[in-house]
């Protein structure tokens, strides 16, 4: 199946994944994760159209809600780290290296 939307979503997902793996700022990593979630939404919606069923569009709403909840938890944790360290770089997270 060579649906162009799948290809586009895969490109978006890969950009998110690469950002997730190589970026060092917790906020940018988090944004990359959100990009990955949006790539998922694109697949859900386009595939919903291809198969002629609504399930995928409903799924997109679920994903949006989950992403919003993730922002609440994630930003509060990142803020907590920023306040105690004045930095959101994940390179500083080495207190437990053995």
């Amino acid at each position: 199946m060579n649906d162009p939307y799948i290809v586009l979503a895969a490109i978006l997902f890969t950009i998110g994944l690469v950002g997730f793996l190589i970026r060092r700022n917790a906020l940018v990593i988090f944004m990359s994760v959100e990009l990955m979630l949006n790539a998922c939404n694109l697949v859900f919606i386009s595939m919903s159209q291809v198969h002629g069923i609504l399930d995928g569009q409903v799924a997109a709403f679920f994903v949006m809600v989950v992403a919003a909840a993730e922002v609440v938890v994630g930003l509060s944790i990142i803020l907590m780290i920023y306040r105690s360290r004045r930095s959101t770089s994940v390179d500083n997270l080495t207190a437990m290296k053995h």
Partner: peptide, 27 residues
Amino acid sequence: QESALKYFLLGSGASAMLLFGVALVFG
């Protein structure tokens, strides 16, 4: 705090991968 951030970042990344898997299987 460090453990919370690590768990959150890695965990949300893993869930995003799982979700893309769900999307592909749905497709």
